[in-house]
């Protein structure tokens, strides 16, 4: 019963914080949510122009393949980058009130979901332009749940460790750039290659692959990608939750 109350408080608080932050950020902006779309769209146009001919030649519906990869990757990066400095930015709150502190990280994921929803609307318009049936989008929430769990776990881990090792924020900013190039966002890895085998260790590869199969190609994703998505999401969630639970008791005296 107490656990149910805590879970409800966690979800309510995450939502309230996400909504407040989202509103506050867009309050004085003339274009509001359009600014969130600008970054992925700009990246999409640039990569399409630079790599479209060379890397996209053998990939069916390459523009959709690229755009979907970008917006899924952007969701993960937005969540984790913001979480790396989250606890310090809420220091007054953390030292004043007892509340489920993981809700701060939960709010970052929810806020990323708001802008992700807008990106999915843009993506569905591009799908229509390429005459790809939108039926696959109905299955996307299943992948999105896994993506949220994976991002939430990773964000919990980063948020808690950064309190004790400030350099993690900079390390993560660097690693996330590397991760972009290590993930098949704008290219495809030939199956059976050494790079393909190496990329099995990258959970984002699994999630993006499953999403593309379901939404763009309307096909059943490979078993390795489904298994990898589920297992890595649950493992990251468990690791993040355990680290955050163990370290959060010391947050108020470290910030």
């Amino acid at each position: 019963m107490i656990r149910m109350d805590l879970a409800r408080h966690f979800l309510r608080l995450s939502y309230a914080l996400a909504l407040a932050e989202f509103k506050a950020r867009n309050e004085d902006s003339a274009f509001g949510i359009l600014w969130y779309l600008l970054n992925p769209l700009l990246m999409f146009v640039l990569l399409l122009l630079v790599f479209g001919e060379r890397l996209g030649a053998g990939i069916p519906h390459y523009p959709l393949y690229l755009l979907f990869g970008i917006i899924i990757f952007e969701f993960f990066i937005r969540t984790t980058n913001e979480s790396a400095r989250l606890i310090h930015s809420y220091r007054v709150l953390i030292k004043s009130v007892a509340f489920p502190r993981a809700a701060l990280v939960g709010s970052v994921v929810m806020k990323a979901l708001f802008s992700h929803a807008a990106e999915i609307v843009v993506f569905s318009i591009v799908m229509a332009l390429f005459a790809v049936p939108p039926a696959g989008l109905a299955l996307y929430p299943a992948v999105l749940v896994l993506l949220c769990l994976f991002s939430f776990g990773c964000a919990l881990l980063l948020a808690s460790i950064t309190v004790f090792i400030a350099d993690i924020e900079y390390v993560w900013a660097f690693l996330s750039r590397l991760l972009f190039f290590a993930t098949p966002v704008f290219y495809a890895i030939p199956s059976g290659s050494a790079a393909g085998a190496l990329n099995l260790a990258n959970p984002l590869t699994h999630l993006i692959t499953v999403a593309r199969y379901l939404v763009i190609y309307l096909e059943v994703p490979p078993a390795w990608a489904i298994a990898g998505s589920v297992l890595s999401s649950l493992a990251m969630l468990a690791a993040g939750w355990l680290a955050f639970s163990a370290l959060q008791k010391r947050f108020p005296e470290r910030i």
Binding site: A20, K23, A24, V92, K95, S96, V97
Partner: peptide, 16 residues
């Protein structure tokens, strides 16, 4: 139910 007011300006969003 415990409510603490240790710092009065916690959690406020000035732009809202």
């Amino acid at each position: 139910k415990v409510i603490s007011l240790i710092n009065l300006f916690f959690g406020l969003q000035e732009r809202l």
